[in-house]
Amino acid sequence: MDPKPNNQNGSEGRLPAMAPLANPYVPFQMENPPKYEARKGIVRGTLFPGLDLPFMGLVNQTELPITPKTELQVLGFAIQELALYLDTHRDDKEALALYRQYQDLYHQGMMEYTRRYGPLNHRTPDDSEAYRWLDDPWPWEYAGNKED
């Protein structure tokens, strides 16, 4: 089924040329779509301007504090968003390359975070003498936002 471009009005999606009746259609997001920078994407809740559709103009303008933890949250968000995109666009080479760049940065950030604050999961090597897995705060606690 040949996809038919449908971007006359700035839309970033395309509908199929042949469309059997009695079927649901959502325009397919076109390959290599525009993307926010990751730190903006996470507060908007999407990396893609085309999918940024806020309720009643309520747009998140939050500036996340720059900490080792938020850095991992930003990178982890970009990876998740690109993973869902790649699940339905497995042949988009630009998105795949970007996904791998964010993975490299995440890995570096995670090793550095672990060295300073302790492991984020049981499989991260931590060469400190103490068993730091248990250290407070846990993620759901208000104190989990200490900007260290």
Binding site: P16, N23, P24, Y25, V26, P27, F28, Q29, I42, V43, R44, G45, T46, F48, L51, D52, L53, P54, F55, L58, V59, N60, E81, L84, Y85, D87, T88, H89
Partner: peptide, 19 residues
């Protein structure tokens, strides 16, 4: 607002999965 935006993205992906 973050969680709401994720629902929109997931809807898009499920729609693409139908295709």
């Amino acid at each position: 607002k973050f969680l709401r935006a994720r629902e929109v993205v997931h809807f898009q992906r499920f729609g693409e999965a139908c295709q």
